[in-house]
Amino acid sequence: MKQVNVTQRQPILTALIMTMLGLSAPSLANTIEVSERTNITLSGKVVGAVIADSDVSGMGVNNLPNGLFGKNNDPSVAIDTTLTRLNLGSHTQFAPDETLKSLISFDFNSSNNGKMDLRMREAYVDWQIGNRSLLVGQTWSTLMDLNRFPDTVLEPTLSGVVFTRQPMVRWSQQFGSFRYDIALESGSNRVVTEDHQVDLDTSSHTPDFIFGLQTDNEHYWLRAAGVVNRITVKDQQQSTTYSDTGWALHLSGGIKFNPKDHLQLAYFNSRGNDRYVLGVSQTGPLFTPGTGDFHLRESESLWAAVGHSWTDTLKSTFSYGIWQAEALEWQADTFTQTQFALANIKWLARKNLTFGLEYNYTHYQRSRSDQRDNHRLILAVDYAF
């Protein structure tokens, strides 16, 4: 990749704008050298998908476990480009073992309804010195396992997958094949009540404490991560504050059988922290007015994925996930189980140009209302630059 020196005749702002608009001269590449130590890189991808659903309309490109709830049950065919993404990064080399990296990333899927709606995904600075790293900003949660996700044609929306981004301060250190992470991440009191006339104040919260430990080599990886937090809610009418301690444990790993086949497994157990699981946050902490009862419901999930490469340019993924929780005896209608299964095939037609065909099956159960399911077929094109 070519690099261009930015001089006084070509200011960095002008160069970046020209790059982003595609108006640059032929010599201007994705990476711009702004000094002897610092490079700035523009990258991203354009994603287009045709999505056919059997029993839901208006669900959006992300097939969330609770996406069927409250939606029309008519079949639908949608064309979606909201996962198109732009990334702007920098890399500064201070010394052979000291670097400073930053990233700003956004897409257009803030509302997950098929309409282009700008969303900030990540914005962070990462200071690396030798085997140590200090990260500040918004990025993927430390509770996640970023070693590998099911290789889907869009985003991995499998039931039970721990999948969220939020602001944090994280310290990491590597010792050979072992690494540990310690982080304070933005807390969230997503307390709900079945009496909508009650005024709840959930603004007061403390950061979530998250830790992670993993080991990996070229054949396998294992990771354990956990979170402990204090969940607080205030009844405005009674001027009374209630709080309880929540926690969650995430165990995950994978094995590479050979260059063509691999297996992934992940298990999650939670008390009051379902918000870390994609698409089931509405089940979290429940407050009962009058009695002042404050309930942190427990839940668990499990998912697995198998990947196989047919050729150097053709590969498939098969995956299944389940999340479940018991409803409280007196509780009104709520989610109790979601399941998700997928099978796909992806073809690397040209460098950075991928075509994918995927089948999804989603199913959910609730404590009192009828269960629902849906079949989804996706044809996607992904061009990375």
Results as ranks from 00 to 15, higher is better:
residue 70 G to A: 07
residue 47 V to F: 07
residue 284 G to M: 10
residue 254 G to P: 04
residue 146 L to H: 00
residue 12 I to T: 13
residue 225 A to H: 02
residue 377 L to T: 11
residue 191 V to L: 07
residue 273 N to M: 00
residue 353 L to Y: 13
residue 60 G to P: 01
residue 257 F to W: 07
residue 203 S to F: 08
residue 183 A to H: 03
residue 258 N to K: 10
residue 210 I to N: 05
residue 47 V to D: 00
residue 243 S to F: 02
residue 118 L to V: 13
residue 132 R to T: 15
residue 241 T to F: 10
residue 281 S to I: 08
residue 97 D to S: 12
residue 63 N to I: 12
residue 206 T to R: 12
residue 230 R to I: 05
residue 289 P to R: 06
residue 110 S to N: 15
residue 365 Q to T: 10
residue 305 A to S: 10
residue 264 Q to N: 04
residue 319 S to Y: 11
residue 64 L to T: 07
residue 151 D to P: 00
residue 251 L to Y: 03
residue 350 R to L: 11
residue 153 V to N: 08
residue 104 I to N: 14
residue 340 F to N: 01
residue 299 S to E: 12
residue 140 W to F: 11
residue 312 D to W: 04
residue 141 S to R: 02
residue 260 K to T: 09
residue 153 V to P: 11
residue 219 H to Y: 09
residue 373 D to G: 10
residue 383 Y to G: 05
residue 74 D to V: 01
residue 310 W to Q: 11
residue 102 S to Y: 11
residue 62 N to D: 14
residue 295 H to G: 07
residue 380 A to R: 10
residue 8 Q to Y: 15
residue 226 G to M: 07
residue 314 L to E: 02
residue 93 Q to N: 15
residue 212 G to Q: 05
residue 85 R to Q: 14
residue 124 Y to F: 11
residue 373 D to I: 00
residue 317 T to C: 09
residue 252 S to V: 03
residue 224 A to C: 00
residue 19 T to C: 06
residue 326 E to Y: 14
residue 309 S to F: 11
residue 349 A to I: 11
residue 265 L to T: 08
residue 223 R to M: 04
residue 333 D to C: 01
residue 311 T to V: 02
residue 368 R to Q: 08
residue 380 A to L: 09
residue 343 A to M: 15
residue 359 Y to W: 10
residue 316 S to M: 12
residue 324 Q to A: 13
residue 194 E to H: 01
residue 190 R to H: 01
residue 131 N to I: 04
residue 13 L to V: 12
residue 87 N to C: 08
residue 55 D to G: 06
residue 190 R to N: 07
residue 233 V to N: 01
residue 305 A to M: 09
residue 350 R to E: 03
residue 279 G to R: 04
residue 282 Q to C: 01
residue 217 N to P: 10
residue 223 R to I: 03
residue 37 R to T: 15
residue 255 I to N: 13
residue 320 Y to D: 07
